[in-house]
Nucleic acid binder design. Structure first.
Lengths: 193, 193
DNA sequence: CAGTGTACTAAGCGCGCGCTTAGCGCGATG
DNA sequence: CATCGCGCTAAGCGCGCGCTTAGTACACTG
């Protein structure tokens, strides 16, 4: 029986609430009640409601960026590399669909400074996709006309999943991830081995 | 010099405000000020802030559903049909990117009844995509394993565009629409003529 | 068993929200 | 030129928000 610290219980409650109602429609009373505490408890552990969002958003962006960098570095084969990237990126959004909903859709609720920081992580993520696609094209393994545009389309598929994905629905994270990895390879015109 | 009715000026102002800040972060004072009126004027022409959102959302859903039905009916050739659908659907989201942002991302702010109605339109849209893909697969023109999953992926590409699309950026609605139509045909494994 | 630090709560402040009410200005009508 | 009604506004109500302050319960220490 491990005790979950109050600070984390509040973060988990905030993820749930932000994902269900959105940041602006969520009250600090809702978050603290979900965590089984009084309204004032939130301010013992976190500076503000926005700070709570920032912590969730920042951790999520660092997490996915790291994951993609690892997937990129895992092999030099463009086909396996892009497939792994799209598989992992999609799977993360399915497994952590609530967290991902907050990470992807509540950026505009951050303060300008926090928003700028997060925008940097997002550019990094785009660049990793672009590099993976461009390298495949340069090696003649992919057929691509618009590298940044194609990168955006692949990222969009995975991100938009959090708008409709239901954890208790028929699709498992692995099955969507496999489908989207296959679609990504088709979209880049990958030569089938 | 045509006079724009106050009712529509308020709707246009609401689209701008909802798209920039989101429904819950937008105040009725903000909307009426943008329309050049006093706060009370909003309630002369609209029953509530939610009703304003519903009108925007409903019109947008009917609009896109109709557009897709037309594109579906325009030809019996699966390849041309799906290309037209994805082109038009993508182009609409680029041309009306602010309106589309509200239509796609503020559904949870609707009343349960309005949300249910809009959900029906969304199911219709999914079904049109599924029909177009299934028919291509049945005729042996497409290679598809998961029809509903592939439909969701194509829809996601177009919808998620409103998260990043900038009207004054380098990409024109037609250029993104063309790219996404091509990617859609690749994703369904369309035989090139 | 008094003293102390930690983790939390009870109570509530001030603000800005969605929305209402009462009434005004003014062109159209007789 | 009195009357009416339409389109709009000035003023403000009551509520629930984010957040603060002052204090309490209690495990731990000597």
């Amino acid at each position: 029986m491990t005790e979950v610290p109050a600070r984390e219980r509040l973060m988990d409650a905030a993820v749930e609430a932000f994902a269900e109602r959105g940041f602006h429609a969520t009250t600090t009373r809702d978050i603290s009640t979900r965590a089984g505490m009084s309204p004032a408890a939130l301010y013992v552990h976190h500076a503000s409601k926005e700070q709570l969002l920032y912590e969730i958003s920042s951790a999520g962006h660092l997490n996915t960026r790291h994951m993609l960098a690892d997937a990129y570095a895992s092999t030099a084969d463009p086909v396996a590399r892009l497939a792994t990237m799209q598989f992992e990126f999609t799977k993360w959004h399915a497994v952590h669909s609530k967290r991902a909903r907050v990470v992807q859709y509540e950026i505009s609720a951050l303060t300008p400074e926090h928003r700028r920081e997060v925008a940097g992580h997002r550019r990094d993520i785009e660049r990793i996709y672009q590099d993976a696609i461009r390298e495949g094209a340069d090696k003649g393994v992919f057929e691509i006309e618009d590298v940044p545009g194609t990168a955006l389309a692949l990222i969009s598929m995975a991100i938009d999943l959090v708008r409709w994905y239901q954890p208790d629905g028929p699709r498992t994270p692995d099955s969507v991830a496999q489908l989207y990895a296959d679609l990504a390879l088709r979209a880049v015109g990958a030569r089938t081995a």
